[in-house]
Simulated assay, not measured.
Amino acid sequence: MTNLAKLIPGNTFPSIEAMLLDGDRVNLGQAHGDADWQMLVVYRGKHCPLCVRYLNLLEQHKQQLTAIGVSITAVSADSKIQATENMQSLNVSFPIAYGLSVEQMKQLGLYISTPRSETETDHIFSEPALFVINGEGVLQAVDISNAPFLRPELDVIVRGLTFVRKQTDYPIRGTLIE
């Protein structure tokens, strides 16, 4: 059995880059636009209808997140062709990155899966995760799943982040390490 490396809330989020469909490279943990916080959503890829649904639901919360200074980027291990094809099913205005490597997946502490068959997809992919990185580049919140149907409710995330952003002394949770 292999131990999975965990990112620790309160520590600096690793500098990881991926490609956007327009050819630009993006630092996945860095806020963009007028935001100072970043929400990074890792999704399984084009082959996952639950991921497409989740990303489309996330778009419905983008305005609320933007209002509290949180930008959104989503990333998968898909190829550029797969990511481009996936845009036909996605109705989102936040950046979609592709090409997450196995090394990067491990660096993020993600659960990694192999396809069940060639009809599912043609590459190793990560299971879903959600990271919130604060204005200092520190991991504020993390949710890592090993299955596509285990994801935090977006309404709850938005309400929680709104609460945290309004507090001046709300601590980063989960930092006690024995």
Rank of each mutant, 00 (worst) to 15 (best):
V138R: 09
G160L: 13
T12P: 02
R151L: 06
L50W: 10
T114Y: 05
K166A: 12
L20I: 06
D143V: 05
E118H: 02
G137L: 13
Q63F: 06
F149A: 14
Q30D: 00
M105V: 10
E178R: 03
G69T: 14
D78E: 03
A67H: 13
G99S: 13
H32V: 05
L161R: 01
I157S: 03
W37I: 03
F131M: 06
G99W: 13
A77P: 00
A77T: 04
K80V: 14
D155A: 15
L28S: 03
I144W: 02
N91K: 08
R53A: 12
V142Y: 02
P152R: 15
L110Q: 09
H61I: 09
P95E: 03
S117L: 06
K106I: 15
A97E: 11
Q38L: 02
I157P: 00
L58W: 07
L57W: 07
T119G: 01
F131Y: 15
V75H: 00
T66S: 14
Q63C: 05
T12C: 04
E59F: 05
L100E: 07
D24S: 11
T73K: 08
A83W: 06
T162R: 09
T2A: 11
Q140C: 09
G109A: 15
S93G: 11
V164P: 00
I96A: 06
R116A: 15
K46D: 11
P128V: 08
L139I: 12
H47L: 05
R25Y: 03
G23P: 08
H32P: 00
T119W: 02
L90D: 03
V92L: 01
L130P: 00
Q64G: 13
L4W: 04
E127F: 04
V138Q: 08
T168I: 08
G45Y: 05
M87S: 11
G69Y: 12
C51L: 11
S79G: 04
L40S: 06
P171Y: 12
R151Y: 02
E153D: 13
E17W: 01
I72K: 01
N27W: 01
S145F: 03
M19R: 12
K62D: 05
F125K: 12
N86L: 09
Q38Y: 01
S71A: 11
K62Y: 08
L176Q: 03
A74Q: 01
S101F: 12
N56C: 10
I177S: 02
M87Y: 00
A129H: 02
D122V: 12
E59Q: 15
A97W: 14
L55G: 07
K80Q: 15
P171R: 12
E178Y: 04
